[in-house]
Design a protein around this nucleic acid. Structure first.
Lengths: 333, 333
DNA sequence: GCGATTGCTGAAAGCGCTCTCATAAGAATA
DNA sequence: TATTCTTATGAGAGCGCTTTCAGCAATCGC
């Protein structure tokens, strides 16, 4: 039950050099004569040497890990973000350390502490509810990349997303199809993105001379369940509508089911637009028109950014476009 | 950009004791006079002491991490497994280290190496394609819990699932509803679970005096896309059927879409059963009848098991039932 | 031809912690 | 009172690695 413990000293003996020299070829930190290097490499091979990560970390102060604080790792959007990060980090010497904050402020703070204590060399925070000052404080301690927040004073380390624009375009699309009475199921309004999406929706209406109707806006919380409930509430209000814009795909699924239960066809009777374009949205019935939030690409960008940041290389975050994906859940009114 | 480095020595000085004593209260490894302990605790508080995890790991040989090798972390089933593990490990002193094998043998082997090199104190392997001997070898090096494989000689560390029984029950349900021509979209037949599910399907047919029709069995690979394609193939074969049993929910979604595209209603014209009961299956239209694989519970059980195993405590894995969840995608023929 | 580089290597001092061993001071025993 | 246990503490030797600092050839410049 125990791994053989070959140390740098063993291979130094075997290759008949000092441990310093072994360390040198290990880290490529100073020139070593070709023959010596060869001998050392052979010895490492022969003894199946595995560096001890603790000793290395202790001596060098680096853990070669990057911490990733996600939220609801099981939600499709975050899962895709993680996949992107995994990909971005894959051929670097760093190993990611994932923790899930569950959108709970206290838990998130605790986990950031845990990661810092684990001496992560960099930190990526995806979403969550941490306040700006916490980000600023953390950024002072470790290279930090943030997604889902726009922290004043940390703009160049925040991956910005155009939630407003995406929502605007989604709404505009419905308007272009002739819809005038467009309902909106919001996300959790404690989150900035939900606010931005609602604003995009409202502004698109106004820009097209459609007076927003407050009764057509229902608060959801980004879950299927909440989408379903929101629709029940909407039906209860007795206002008619010919289209629904849901703040994310999952709530759109709930909306879809609520309509199904009432025998309302999509898109013939009511058009439906989601947001995020999670993988299964291409396979719903009908396939969902939605605003694509390229989560895997975002994750990839975050990973690349943190790698650069840790190397002190100049960093410029890519612009991430939000694209409207028109499928079959929307049609002319 | 750097954390203050308070060491055990600093707090020893501050509390006017030796570092040995500090270590003792830190690890509760020997009795310490109440007053002394108090002084040390105060000093730690005052100086905001954070133990250095590398030094500790180096000296003790423990990393306080448990490695988790998953597959396709973004697939709903694995995401739920992970959530369960997260929960199970949550209030233990261990931090999980997640890596994703992508169902690629070579990658999985590499990642197991990585985890071992990171000196994980325990390892959970979820699914994947590693051969039995690799598991046996690994189990010799580190406490190991496996889900999704039945490794001979390691039975008591493998979480067993009754794929066969689940599939049997799903098929039986369709038969009970009067269906006789039941198609099956398999999973990836290189995986044991796909084989077991197919076998359950076949046996249920036979046990009910229904001769299996080979043309009604189409190979899929557990994805929406493959479910869609499988149906195209099935339609091409020209055999009629009144029900489809898909080897997992995701392929069932693909099946659903294929039916939708041809104007075939579910469940009026064709009944559909999935497998896994991933979260969104309760919100498809219609909600999907499926075999519930309690992924979060499985993850939780795996986490508890590895914790016990690491403490050398006796371990007995729970029996995990597969329950048929009847929703609205199946009806009488 | 002699001091100054340059290229390669070794010795040794940490990094911050755990853990064994030794020891001092009381308490218990004889 | 002398002896043996306890109990609480300190000294110090690692754990395996990185990283100065020096040293020694061989080479270079003029």
């Amino acid at each position: 039950m125990t791994r053989k413990n070959v140390t740098i000293a063993d291979i130094a003996t075997q290759a008949d050099v000092s441990i310093s020299t072994v360390s040198r070829v290990l880290n490529n930190t100073a020139p070593v004569a070709a023959a010596t290097r060869r001998a050392i490499l052979d010895a490492m091979e022969a003894l199946n040497y595995q560096p001890n990560i603790f000793a290395r970390g202790l001596a060098s102060g680096q853990s070669m890990t990057v911490g990733v604080l996600t939220q609801h790792i099981h939600s499709p959007l975050y899962a895709s973000l993680i996949r992107g990060i995994l990909e971005g980090v894959d051929h670097s010497p760093y190993t990611p350390l994932f923790v899930d904050g569950y959108w709970q402020r206290e838990r998130e703070e605790r986990l950031v502490e845990t990661l810092l204590r684990r001496r992560v060399d960099g930190l990526i925070v995806l979403g969550g509810t941490l306040p700006a000052e916490k980000f600023l404080e953390t950024a002072r301690q470790v290279p930090l990349i943030v997604f889902g927040h726009n922290v004043p004073g940390l703009e160049n380390q925040c991956l910005q997303l155009d939630d407003y624009g995406g929502a605007y375009r989604a709404t505009e699309h419905l308007i272009a199809l002739g819809h005038r009475r467009i309902a909106h199921v919001t996300g959790n309004l404690e989150h900035a993105d939900a606010l931005a999406r609602r604003e995009g929706y409202l502004q698109a209406l106004r820009d097209n001379q459609i007076e927003p109707i407050p009764e057509l806006v229902v608060e959801g919380e980004y879950t299927e369940q909440s989408g379903l409930l929101a629709m029940e509430m909407l039906f209860g209000r007795g206002r008619t509508f010919s289209a629904v814009f849901a703040a994310n795909d999952e709530s759109a699924y709930g909306v879809r089911l609520a309509l199904y239960r009432r025998g309302i066809r999509v898109p013939e009777d009511v058009s439906l637009v989601g947001f995020d374009d999670i993988p299964s949205s291409a396979y719903t019935t009908p396939p969902l028109t939605t605003v694509r939030q390229p989560a895997a690409e975002i994750g990839l960008a975050a990973a690349r950014a943190i790698l650069k940041l840790m190397q002190d290389e100049p960093l410029e975050l890519p612009h991430i476009p939000m694209e409207l994906i028109i499928r079959e859940s929307t049609s002319r009114n």
